[in-house]
Computed example of a mutant assay.
Amino acid sequence: MGLVASDKGLRRTTLPQAYPEDCIEQLGHAITEAAPSPAHFEDIRDKLVRYFEGEEVSFEDEPIDVEDASPFHRAAWHACRTIPKGETRTYKWLAEQAGNALAPRAAGQAMAKNRLAIIILATA
């Protein structure tokens, strides 16, 4: 997996790839000014390994930095992080939680643009 973070939290992740170069390509411009810092990601790396081994792991408290996203997307992603593991919600529910009950399609678009794979689980 590829991970990019700021001082505030994770900014972008990729799903697991066969080669590191594939992660770099998927991270795109998010990695342009990033400096390699494997030690910075040790805790989340351990969580991800446990997650992929099938353990119950929560990423709800993992700090994220999505300040450059629209307020609605940020709210939808935040709401998605509160969905309990194993449960699903509709895009209508997600839109309501994000502050606009009339925007279920926009909630779906927010999830389609989810740049924090695994950290924000698209269970809607």
Rank of each mutant, 00 (worst) to 15 (best):
V4C: 04
I119K: 02
F59L: 03
A107I: 07
Q97L: 05
R105H: 10
E96K: 15
E21D: 14
G99E: 01
F52E: 05
E55Y: 05
S37I: 01
P38G: 04
R105Q: 14
A107D: 00
P84D: 07
Y51H: 14
R115Y: 09
G86K: 06
L116P: 05
D22L: 14
A110F: 07
A124H: 13
T82Q: 13
T82D: 01
I120S: 03
S6D: 12
L10E: 06
L121C: 07
G108W: 10
L94D: 04
F72G: 00
V66A: 07
F72P: 02
A124L: 07
F41E: 06
L116F: 01
I120V: 13
K8E: 12
K47G: 00
E53Q: 13
R89G: 12
V57I: 07
T123W: 10
R11H: 03
L121V: 09
D7F: 12
L116G: 11
A106T: 14
P36S: 00
E56V: 10
V57R: 01
S37P: 01
G9Y: 05
K92H: 10
Y51A: 04
P36D: 08
K113Y: 10
A76L: 00
R50D: 09
F72Y: 12
S37H: 10
T123N: 11
R11E: 13
P84I: 07
A107H: 06
I118F: 09
P36Y: 09
I120M: 02
K47H: 06
K92V: 10
P38N: 03
T82H: 07
S37M: 10
E96M: 10
A101Y: 03
T88L: 08
L15Q: 11
E56H: 11
A35W: 02
R11N: 02
Y19N: 13
G28N: 15
P71S: 11
A110G: 02
P38F: 09
A34N: 08
T88N: 14
D61S: 08
E87Q: 14
A110H: 09
K92C: 00
L94Q: 09
Y19C: 09
A110E: 06
A39L: 05
H40A: 12
A95V: 03
R105T: 14
E56D: 12
R74F: 02
D22Y: 14
S58N: 03
Q26L: 15
K85R: 14
H73C: 02
P84T: 02
E62P: 00
F52Y: 15
L27R: 07
A107E: 03
S70M: 04
A39P: 02
A98W: 07
G28Y: 06
L48P: 03
G28S: 14
T13I: 08
T13K: 06
W93Q: 10
A124D: 13
C80N: 07
K85W: 11
A124P: 15
I83G: 07
G2T: 04
Y91L: 11
L15V: 11
G99R: 02
N114P: 01
A98D: 04
D22P: 02
R74C: 06
